[in-house]
């Protein structure tokens, strides 16, 4: 819900979450898929270095979603797991 109020106020906001069905239901404009529900930006099963690299990739995808109009935004896909 928060992202819609940011967008309503004219500030682009990207929702990073593993729960895509909910993100779609609330009709968020910009969505980037996170890794897991309990760890949207990390994967505790990997090493700290791998985890950070993965996090960096998702953050870059999210920033990219902010820099594009949602019309040409596809939901970006992180790795599902955790």
């Amino acid at each position: 819900m928060l992202e819609k109020e940011f967008e309503r106020a004219g500030i682009p906001a990207v929702l990073v979450t593993a729960l895509l069905p909910i993100a779609r239901t609330i009709r968020a404009n910009r969505i980037t898929q996170g890794i897991g529900i309990t760890s949207p930006l990390g994967d505790p099963r990997t090493s700290r270095a791998e985890e950070k690299a993965l996090r960096r990739r998702i953050v870059l995808e999210a920033l990219d979603a902010l820099a594009r109009e949602p019309a040409d935004n596809k939901e970006t896909k992180g790795r599902i797991g955790g």
Binding site: A13, G34, V59, A62, L66, A67
Partner: peptide, 9 residues
Amino acid sequence: VSGVLLTST
């Protein structure tokens, strides 16, 4: 602020 990165569980 130009943009927001919002994380949700």
